[in-house]
Design a protein around this nucleic acid. Structure first.
Lengths: 233, 233
DNA sequence: GAGTGGTCTAGACCACTCA
DNA sequence: GAGTGGTCTAGACCACTCC
């Protein structure tokens, strides 16, 4: 009987995944080497390698030279959340996006923000606060500090018509970023702008970006409690 | 002069990334084809291909056959959050993990949970509630529903000594999952168990898992407001 | 030292999509 | 139809790590 099945790295990957998820190969177990699999599937070793690398990247198997490839014992799942521009996120939901600047001025940076950025407290940074609306309902409050030493042009940027988010994307590249998410109480100003009561729970995203260890910006993104961050895998 | 630089796909990838982040190639711009880059770097096309594929995977460039490779216009950043077992997360912080079962019994599933799972309300599911502590301080409340049709063994599983989280990892493979995160008010039971006041903000993760479209489990994971989900990129 | 995965090459054919 | 990326092969050498 002639081999009719076309072997692509996807086919191989999916078949390996099937064997793992149906416990043909159990957690912690060693699976056959690349050479053996290549022969079984009638493919080149490079093709099997690509399939296995993809499984390793998604955390399904662990690979070590000489030791071989094992099914991961505790599948450390990871969720990927897309962090789009607010405008995109809103328009993709089929809603109308609106932007409004609340305030924009140079200010001495408070201690907690300075600490997050790794700079001295009291330095003059650009402090921009703005609202993003979806269908005229409050969607996100953006409270941002921009390091003027790294991005001097921010002092005169047109934040009245363009959100700092979008302006920075186009004018200040970054190489590294940290995100974190937490539940917090709405502060007084946030509550007013988001049309909540002070102390209501809000979903807060904090992002800090760097260009090669030079801090660019710190932002606190505040969402009303109806907001959800969703991810599929 | 002899070419001394060793070309690996990493070197190529990093150089391409440098050109993009320093705006040598600007957003929306077409970059040279694989063949041209292969010649420039003195590498095989396959090597350049690997570098470009990686950049495409992380959302830095977009590739289309015939059209070529472009620098992405609005870099849709994505953040990856690792979702480890609670035990692992706590122990990696150098703290002591403790588990306590609150209740475990068959119950008719309420409408909202049934809707999330895509099953009929009122079906008997396994309802397990449990606490996870770090250094004896409340870390996470796990409120879980398990589909007994998909995982009948859950009825007699030893949830008094093993968390449903860990038991399911070892006994019920899944192929698809959805996560979402939101800020919510602590419900009465949650407040008591997490040592908060009712209505305090809590960070809630909801996860639903499927084995090929068959719903396995729905879980609500509730964290005190001090909790942060962190991601780096 | 030896076994396994990591990477590279040169060439080939295919698949998609733009014009 | 033609150009570009997608994938595969066969072979090779290297790098790491276990014994």
């Amino acid at each position: 009987m002639k081999r009719v099945l076309r072997s692509s790295y996807r086919t191989i990957r999916d078949e390996l995944l099937r064997r793992i998820s149906t416990r043909v190969w159990k957690p912690g177990e060693l699976i056959p080497g690349e050479e053996a699999l290549a022969e079984e599937f009638g493919a080149a070793r490079a093709t099997v390698n690509r399939a296995l690398q993809e499984l390793a990247r998604t955390g399904v198997v662990e690979r070590r030279r000489k030791a071989g490839t094992r099914v991961v014992l505790h599948p450390v799942r990871e969720a990927r959340f897309v962090i789009p521009l607010v405008r995109q996120a809103i328009e993709e939901e089929g809603k109308t996006y609106r932007y409004r600047l609340v305030a924009s001025r140079g200010e001495r940076v408070p201690g907690d923000v300075a600490a997050s950025l790794g700079i001295s407290a009291g330095l003059p940074l650009m402090h921009v606060r703005a609202m993003h609306y979806a269908d005229d309902r409050p969607y996100q409050f953006e409270d941002r500090w921009i390091n003027l030493e790294a991005v001097p042009a921010a002092r005169t940027a047109p934040f009245d018509v363009q959100s700092p988010n979008e302006w920075l994307v186009e004018n200040a590249p970054f190489s590294r970023a940290t995100f974190s998410f937490l539940a917090d109480r709405a502060r007084e100003e946030e509550a007013v702008l988001l049309e909540l009561r002070e102390g209501d729970p809000v979903l807060v995203g904090e992002r800090i970006t760097f260009l090669v260890d030079r801090p660019i910006t710190f932002v606190r993104l505040v969402h009303p409690p109806s907001h959800r961050m969703v991810s599929e895998l």
